[in-house]
Design a protein around this nucleic acid. Sequence first.
DNA 1: TAGATTGTTAATCGATTAACAATC
DNA 2: TAGATTGTTAATCGATTAACAATC
Lengths: 287, 287
Amino acid sequence: MAIGRPSPSSSQTPDPGAARRSSRARGIPEATVARLPLYLRALTALSERSVPTVSSEELAAAAGVNSAKLRKDFSYLGSYGTRGVGYDVEYLVYQISRELGLTQDWPVVIVGIGNLGHALANYGGFASRGFRVAALLDADPNVVGSTAAGLPVRHMDELEEIVATQHVSIGVITTPPGAAQQVCDRLVEAGVTSILNFAPTVLTVPDGVDVRKVDLSIELQILAFHEQRKAGDEPSAGDSVLDRAPGPVRAAAAKLRRAAGGKAEPAKAAPTAKGGPDDDLSAVMPA
Amino acid sequence: MAIGRPSPSSSQTPDPGAARRSSRARGIPEATVARLPLYLRALTALSERSVPTVSSEELAAAAGVNSAKLRKDFSYLGSYGTRGVGYDVEYLVYQISRELGLTQDWPVVIVGIGNLGHALANYGGFASRGFRVAALLDADPNVVGSTAAGLPVRHMDELEEIVATQHVSIGVITTPPGAAQQVCDRLVEAGVTSILNFAPTVLTVPDGVDVRKVDLSIELQILAFHEQRKAGDEPSAGDSVLDRAPGPVRAAAAKLRRAAGGKAEPAKAAPTAKGGPDDDLSAVMPA
DNA sequence: TAGATTGTTAATCGATTAACAATC
DNA sequence: TAGATTGTTAATCGATTAACAATC
């Protein structure tokens, strides 16, 4: 592979340090930013029920966090509450919306219109938050020309023009993993500076471009890890005595296996590691 | 609302403390667990290319993290590397798979077969990681009986029997938000102990049940926050002089607004807060 | 042996939390 | 005033990172 030290901000996982630093410029930690949408959602529900004010305790419960954290989070935004009373719901909705940049319109392009692209195009939560689907794009001639969520699917060739004329700064990638980096490069070249990536691939982008990823498979794997522990912590089917042994013994065993040219438990590793097309989304999303 | 202090482990965001504590029992921090799937994906790609060994530097680059973090992560699993050489790819694939619980079969039910449910049913990354779709379920008679990804969509009434007979411990919720808690309750009652929630709702579950959420809208909002900052940090359209003023002045302004019974900038807050059905996924997923 | 690379240590940093003074 | 609730402080905890001794 011979890959040099990666630039911290050029990998798919946005460099937490960079994000923190930039947020800290105005004093809002990244962890707080990630919770603001939760608060906003809970506040919007209260607003629709015409609830005028809410305490940190009530709002925290509705958002699923504890109240100390919520108050700390809000303290980064300013002093928007009233001691002894609570927070004005409408005012807080507005302030958080503004802080998140939701008081402006964000045109978005979605690239790769398979089932997932369809689902996103139809997602009501986008429009109600200031996100507007500027265009649906696909490279497959069989898909181009069809409609999804009332919008025509346009060809990738139009990407550059659409991004330029509609001032698109956010792109959503729902292509198969093999196409994702290439699509990403074109988006960035066209002027997109924020990317939401659903393809299970690490994307490389230049400094100044933010990438967030949503990975369906990873979430399930994390659940499986905890599920495994709940099951009584008895050794799983794949466990061997050596695997449970103290570090030095395991290490020695590993070396023995390597020395013997042997793949450790290959028959057991194979089913999960190579059971199918690795993370292929082509069944979901046309190329 | 009058909601009592929420039990830390009963909210949708899995109590990080609890997760950490349980992981720490065997010494694996939650942040490390969340990265294991990334390493596994990179290793699987190397395995398919028949690469025998890999250094921490190379693997870290492929996974999009730095090598110190990767070595630290691996140190929680044991000593699986060889100094001066690197890691045996096949052996590491097996060890990480085992640690994550992927050497066993995980039957999964998906509830709510709209576009998103379809996309997930078709997602190749599941099957190749030991996750097997045990059943697709929906409450809508018009959807029940159709097929998705070659599987029949079955009625919610069959949920309990399916979970019991097929030993399902993981459920995926892709219903509209209004149905999510009810579906969650039924899943838990039937014996499911891990839930992946795509509905934009906070789920309440008993102790011992893990919930992870994937929230499309929240990811976009976080991108918008950073995008807003890139745009030169000039005041956005919604800013007023008071909103930019020091804390005490802002607070005073808030109080004045409240005293006047006035909603702050209602015309500006309204479009984003109430533009459409809030987070309604019904266009995406049939009830 | 000499070069390469791991596994671990220790310092640093950010996030969480409880507690409480400030103040409505 | 008395009760309620915010905003902030300070302690604690987990995560990250660089550096390097161990060792292949």
